[in-house]
């Protein structure tokens, strides 16, 4: 990454949208106090949500929101990649497939039949997949929506020419740094904090509720033997210690980031468990 801001040239930023709710793009606009500075530090050349001025690439930084759910988008993401020096996914959809990835365990055709009067107009893929299944991603910003401070931080780091710092540790560290009382230990809530990546500032436990994993698995989406996140331990404890039934354990892991590898594997394990329970009764 070249150092921006040292000369007259500002880095060119583009923001692209795929299948998503726009919440992450709105997080950029919610940077109210810093928006002006951001506009000065960067040249925002493509951001259809904000401006009709849509300049062609190449771009220094491309922020990608949303998952890939159509044939057309699968092509479009390739062209975004070709035009971007640094591609950053923003949010659960672009990073892990989003809540719409629930379709990956279901039959999209039957949904279409139920929802739309003329289902044949709907052209979509059977799956909702993260950007990284299609192109190389340089940095991933997790969250639903992303943490605007984290986005700002990554941009600041890129401008300074340093490797962006993105935490991979658990939400519990942030939770304890806020000196919260643990909702799992004190209230018996099934909190996903221990296996979820920090970055949100432990918002949910700070409000007395359990983390639902919107920042994805700790230490990345990929999982190796003996490495965090130890979803198996947490899931077993939800079941044995907090007495969640298998389908409830499954649902804890199959949420906003349900298609992230570690969470996906865990929910699939509990799918089998659920079937076993059914079989017994």
């Amino acid at each position: 990454m070249e150092r921006g801001n040292t000369g007259k040239e500002r880095l060119r930023l583009a923001v692209f949208k795929f299948a998503s709710c726009d919440g992450c793009q709105l997080s950029i606009l919610n940077l109210e106090d810093e928006l002006l500075a951001l506009g000065q530090a960067l040249d925002i050349v493509y951001f259809p949500e904000v401006s009709s001025k849509m300049n062609p690439g190449p771009y220094d930084i491309a922020l990608v929101e949303g998952s890939i759910t159509t044939e057309e988008d699968a092509h479009r993401i390739q062209s975004v990649r070709e035009q971007a020096k640094v591609l950053i996914t923003i949010g659960a959809c672009a990073t892990a497939g989003g809540i719409q990835a629930l379709r990956n365990w279901a039959d999209v055709e039957s949904f279409k039949q139920v929802v739309y009067p003329s289902p044949h107009y709907i052209q979509s893929l059977k799956t909702s997949t993260p950007t990284s299944e299609h192109v190389h991603v340089d940095f991933e910003l997790w969250g639903c929506p992303i943490d605007k401070g984290q986005l700002l931080r990554v941009i600041t780091d890129l401008l300074a020419g340093v490797h962006p710092r993105l935490p991979a540790e658990s939400v519990c560290l942030e939770c304890k740094r806020h000196e919260n009382v643990c909702v799992m230990v004190a209230k018996g809530l099934a909190c996903l904090g221990p296996v979820t990546r920090a970055g949100c500032g432990a918002i949910c436990p700070s409000m007395g509720r359990d983390c639902y994993g919107c920042f994805g698995p700790t230490e990345g989406a990929r999982k190796g033997p003996g490495l965090p996140p130890n979803t198996a331990s947490l899931a077993s404890y939800f079941h044995d210690g907090l007495h969640l039934i298998p389908v409830e354990v499954l649902r804890r892991f199959r949420g906003i980031n349900g298609y992230a590898d570690a969470f996906k594997q865990e929910s699939e394990r509990w799918e089998l468990e659920k079937e076993n329970v059914k079989g017994e009764t």
Binding site: L173, G226, A232, S233
Partner: peptide
């Protein structure tokens, strides 16, 4: 290690 989640709560408290 099969039970520990490396969540760090023990060290924080």
């Amino acid at each position: 290690a099969a039970r520990c989640m490396a969540c760090a709560n023990c060290t924080m408290v």
